[in-house]
Design a protein around this nucleic acid. Structure first.
Lengths: 197, 197
DNA sequence: CAGCACATACCGACTGGTTAGTCTGTCGTC
DNA sequence: GACGACAGACTAACCAGTCGGTATGTGCTG
């Protein structure tokens, strides 16, 4: 096989994806030209269109990666052998930490959904919904067993929490007073406090 | 004075602003061409550049309008002669209702900040901060007087709540099961519940 | 009150610049 | 010699903003 890497050891497709992620997060999808992406990755357009069908396709890959990661992590926490309060708290805190670890992904995720083609948009929404459902199931389980209040619809609680996650990429600063873990604990605490009967 | 309106009685600048708001919310700032805006408003480019300095300027006007409205409403509720829990609850619920009433504005607000020129961006951020501060002051007042928990930094609580507001334009559907007021009450309730000592 | 000066409110063709995607060709490897 | 992995010039489309021009109303002046 001819060379797949160049200079450093990272394969070209991954280099392209990394460059695109950074640039999309920095200046937005539409403001980032394909030319800039390939230059940042140290290749040319030929390489990009060899591996990806379109610019839109590149964006879709960013989404796929994030979705896969978050879903895996949620499944791990939700399946744990712990009381439901702890499972929810752990899952809620983990998504905060993971989001902060990948702030670029997060800002792209919520800011650029509408730049995906309608078909890919539907696909991403569907996967997102699965994620949401899983989270909601945890809340409902706690409501059934009486450890959480039934006053508030579970759906709404989930959207409330993810709203704040979404917002993180807008206001979180790595040089702020709180470490990612401290912040995550606080946010998970807010959620659990709101759910007290 | 020559005609300022045409067909219907609405003045041209307002027609342009309304058309731009709808289109920006629908397909995003970059995906909306100036040509589309003027066509939707029933005028031509000459008219747009007669009233606005640039496309960016048009976006800025959308921001200015929203900021003014929200700040006025917050001031009203925060200055009321009521206990702090009620003032915070009313303000928190009101911003939800107002946001739902202007969902287009909301999706533009959070999605298109980075399309503003650096200078206008700074301006909007500064005004936004004033708003945030006012809201935070309410939380802190309640923490001082002991009706809210001091466990969680007030800043964080405010960002938590506004995260969910921000997110509204993503998931709220007018044909959903909850009326705007019901939803607002629930979200305000979540906030106040989380703040219980 | 006629008529001239001037301003405001637009119109729409044009320009300079940018961009996603294509396509032909080259090079190294199996 | 066939094929995968690119290079890079090229194209067709689009788009923000400009600019010279027109139309309509207002105010001043003789």
């Amino acid at each position: 096989m001819p060379r797949t890497t160049d200079g450093d050891g990272t394969p070209v497709p991954q280099r392209l994806l990394a460059a695109a992620t950074r640039l999309f997060a920095e200046r937005g999808y539409d403001r980032t030209s394909v030319q800039e992406i390939v230059e940042a990755a140290g290749v040319t357009k030929g390489a990009l269109y060899h591996y990806f069908g379109s610019k839109d396709d590149l964006l879709h890959e960013v989404y796929a990666r994030v979705l896969r990661l978050q879903q895996d992590r949620l499944d791990t926490f939700a399946d744990a052998d712990e009381p439901v309060e702890k499972r929810l708290r752990d899952a809620a805190a983990d998504v905060v930490v993971t989001t902060i670890d990948n702030l670029d992904d997060a800002s792209i995720f919520f800011r650029s959904m509408h730049h995906l083609s309608p078909e890919k948009n539907r696909q991403v929404r569907a996967e997102r919904r699965r994620y949401h459902e899983r989270f909601r199931a945890l809340v409902e389980e706690g409501q059934q067993s009486g450890v959480f209040t039934k006053e508030i619809p579970a759906d709404l609680v989930v959207d409330y929490h993810f709203g704040s996650i979404h917002h993180l990429s807008t206001w979180y600063r790595p040089d702020g007073p709180l470490s990612p873990q401290e912040l995550a604990d606080h946010l998970a605490d807010l959620l659990l406090r709101a759910l007290r009967p």
